[in-house]
Write a protein that binds this DNA or RNA. Structure first.
Lengths: 93, 93
DNA sequence: TTGACAGGCAAGTGAATACTTGCCTATTCT
DNA sequence: AGAATAGGCAAGTATTCACTTGCCTGTCAA
């Protein structure tokens, strides 16, 4: 559970999740390109790779290997645990 | 939006939210006591106070002052934005 | 088989942050 | 008034974390 929130804490990782939500199964290089292109984030490949590792450890990203490519896809499943942990207040609309 | 995730990133703050979900409108001292009692967290009053400030800035905790007491109560509203940002995958169950 | 491409490992650096300590303000009770 | 209670401010420390740099492994094409 701690891994989940730690993964979500970083803004770059949330943008990576946005990109994967918009276009599934991207490689590391594709994600790097989109971060630079769509968000002006000029980061090293390693930085993005480390972010993906954190997301994967949290279960928010699943990857599959194909030859020299590694495709990443978003899994929003773990997010549901958040709403479940703190149920909606009765005083809220 | 960044404040929300940053607030959720810390384990102690999540426990504070748990305590407020279980029993609403607690003072700083009450929360301190419950952290020590229920979770073995012997933290300084300042530490808890700072955590509450972070939660309040994220909109997850709302406080009202009454004399020398300050009561805190949980607002789970902001949490809903999380599920909305990354819609549920079609491939998930 | 040699070179290009996709990705991984590991150490180092600088900034963010959780927590403490010490002192101060405001409210209530005797 | 004076003491006790509830909380706030600010500086210092130590750990965590994001990012870089340099080098290494594995896959594919010419």
């Amino acid at each position: 559970m701690a891994d989940l929130f730690k993964a979500l804490a970083d803004g770059t990782r949330r943008i990576i999740m946005d990109e994967l939500a918009q276009r599934d199964s991207q490689t590391l290089f594709e994600i790097c390109g989109r971060l630079a292109m769509n968000h002006g984030l000029a980061m090293s490949r390693q930085a993005v790779s480390q972010h993906l590792a954190v997301l994967e450890e949290a279960g928010l990203v699943v990857s599959r290997r194909e030859g020299r490519y590694k495709f990443h896809h978003l899994d929003t499943g773990p997010l549901r645990a958040i709403a479940q942990r703190w149920p909606q207040s009765t005083t809220e609309d």
